[in-house]
């Protein structure tokens, strides 16, 4: 077994590859985790409060209680992710020791470091990080992130910010594929990102890791929208368990993500879902979570 190697880039990015086309749902207890798995979620994100409650309650939001995470791990067979505060590498070490399958270094929790993100290369467990634009995405990848997600305003049920982030990231990728070498240097400077990653995007036409959507998904149509825009999978936070009928909504969002290009199916799964989560206008927010992270 001497050539047996864990924590390689291929293995870490590979799990993100396996989640493509799927839905990852925020859950706060074992019962919600089972509802998510039954609905067809490809993974769950274990956290103490969904983002809309964090937003309402205020105060410092931290990584979840290990006992609660263990309870969720025991309840489902799909991968379990959990959040650590930006820069809080000790919370991340603890999540790795707990055996979570992915760590989300997340702006939804209160940042622990105003300058530095976690050195994610130092871990065997893979990380997902949020990004509002391509420069932020490439900085996170250079720190070792193995999956990037948009940073749509969590807990608002408003998809507009996630759309902005996806359009910005994917639009710049499309431009870079057309850039000549001199322009690639300029892109690296403008994005404050490593030149090597810019050149890789030029050659491949894609991020080196999967790009998922997170933040503000509240309906099956929202999920299909971001998939058609080019997201490769969807995170849903408050959108499921703050809706009127979580189990029905969860199943509908999964179906919509799978068949995102088929309006007939989208109509069918959107009928009679009950109330979606209440939404918030971005202009009225006191805290913009997407501004956290650097």
């Amino acid at each position: 077994m001497s050539d047996h190697e864990t924590g390689t880039v291929r293995v870490k990015r590979g799990l993100a590859e396996m989640l493509k086309g799927g839905v990852i749902m925020d859950v706060v207890n074992a019962e919600q985790a089972r509802i998510a798995e039954d609905a067809g979620a490809c993974a769950v994100m274990a956290l103490e409060r969904v983002p809309s409650d964090i937003r309402r309650d205020g105060g410092v939001a931290r990584a979840s209680d290990p006992e609660m995470i263990d309870g969720i791990k025991a309840a489902v067979t799909i991968p379990v992710m959990a959040k650590a505060r930006i820069g809080h590498f000790v919370e991340a070490q603890m999540l790795q020791a707990l055996g979570v399958d992915y760590v989300d270094e997340s702006e939804v929790l209160t940042p622990a470091d105003e300058t530095h993100h976690i050195d994610k290369w130092a871990f065997t467990v893979p990380f997902v990080c949020g990004a509002t634009n391509l420069g932020e995405a490439l900085r996170r990848i250079s720190e070792g992130a193995c999956m990037i997600r948009s940073k749509g305003e969590a807990g608002t049920g408003n998809i507009v910010e996630a759309v902005r982030h996806l359009r910005s990231i994917l639009g710049d990728i499309r431009k870079i594929t057309q850039a000549d070498p001199a322009e690639q240097f300029e892109w690296a400077k403008r994005l404050q990102a490593p030149l090597g990653l810019v050149q890789e995007i030029h050659d491949t036409g894609a991020l080196p890791v999967p790009l998922f959507c997170a933040g503000g998904v509240a309906t099956p149509a929202d999920a299909a929208l971001v998939m058609q825009l080019g997201a490769e999978a969807v995170f849903v936070g408050s959108g499921i368990f703050k809706s009127e009928h979580p189990a029905v909504m969860a199943k509908a969002v999964v179906e919509a993500t799978t068949h995102f290009n088929d309006p007939d199916i989208l109509v069918k799964v959107s009928r009679g879902l009950g109330r979606s989560m209440p939404g918030l206008e971005i202009g009225t927010l006191e805290t913009r979570l997407a501004d956290r992270g650097w």
């Binding site: 924590g7 293995v11 590979g14 991968p79 893979p126």
Partner: peptide, 15 residues
Amino acid sequence: RRNAYGRQVDSFEEP
């Protein structure tokens, strides 16, 4: 047997 090696931290490469 599904997921028989453990959690993601136990995922590996081997020739």
